[in-house]
């Protein structure tokens, strides 16, 4: 079912592409928030990414790799957006980001503040979406042991950040 859908979209079927959009938009939006904490910006990244994906779909040789391919496009689109707007320059772990306007993504951004992009991505996929390790490994094109190891590190970073903020009364 899903792979024929990708094949149909690859052949130019807009309804199939719309179905793929519906199936992937929310996970990809949360994933994009790892790179750019504003929901507006993340949506802009998705906008660019989906249009690019539609244009580029005919060159996707293996439909089974569609998801990993799409996640990669979103990552590129989000980072490209960030590069063009230095407000959202990637921050190393431990460096506090400037305050964000209130909005639907604000609580999420506050929780993930100060963490590296890749750390945020793993935490979002695991905790915001409750995906298991095999699913995360599949979309990030990484091995399961690698994801497991990075995830443990990401969770430790999150905990350390939280305890640090508590200690400083924030």
């Amino acid at each position: 079912m899903p792979i024929p859908l990708v094949e149909r979209a690859r052949a130019g079927d807009r309804d199939a592409f719309a179905a793929l959009y519906d199936a992937t938009a929310r996970p990809l939006l949360l994933y994009a928030l790892a790179f750019t904490p504003r929901v507006d910006d993340a949506e802009d990244a998705l906008h660019a990414a989906y249009l690019a994906a539609w244009q580029r779909l005919p060159t996707l040789r293996d439909p089974a790799r569609f998801l990993a391919w799409l996640f990669r496009i979103v990552r590129h689109a989000a980072l490209d957006l960030v590069r063009r707007d230095r407000r959202h320059a990637p921050l190393p772990d431990g460096v506090a980001a400037p305050a964000l306007d209130a909005g639907p993504g604000a609580p999420l951004a506050e929780l993930l503040e100060g963490l590296a992009d890749e750390t945020r991505a793993l935490l979002l996929l695991r905790h915001a979406l409750a995906w298991d390790v095999p699913a995360i490994a599949r979309v990030l094109d990484a091995s399961e042991p690698t994801v497991r190891r990075r995830l443990a590190r990401a969770q430790a970073h999150l905990r350390a950040r939280h305890e640090g903020r508590l200690a400083h009364g924030r």
């Binding site: 938009a25 929310r26 939006l29 949506e43 249009l51 609580p107 999420l108 929780l111």
Partner: peptide
């Protein structure tokens, strides 16, 4: 902390405007 993350993500969803912007512009 994981529960807090999930709760914070509950309100985050792609807007209808995004869906229209993407699907209307295909091609």
């Amino acid at each position: 902390l994981a529960l807090a993350l999930r709760a914070a993500a509950d309100d985050v969803a792609p807007s209808d405007a995004l869906r229209h912007a993407v699907l209307d512009a295909l091609g």
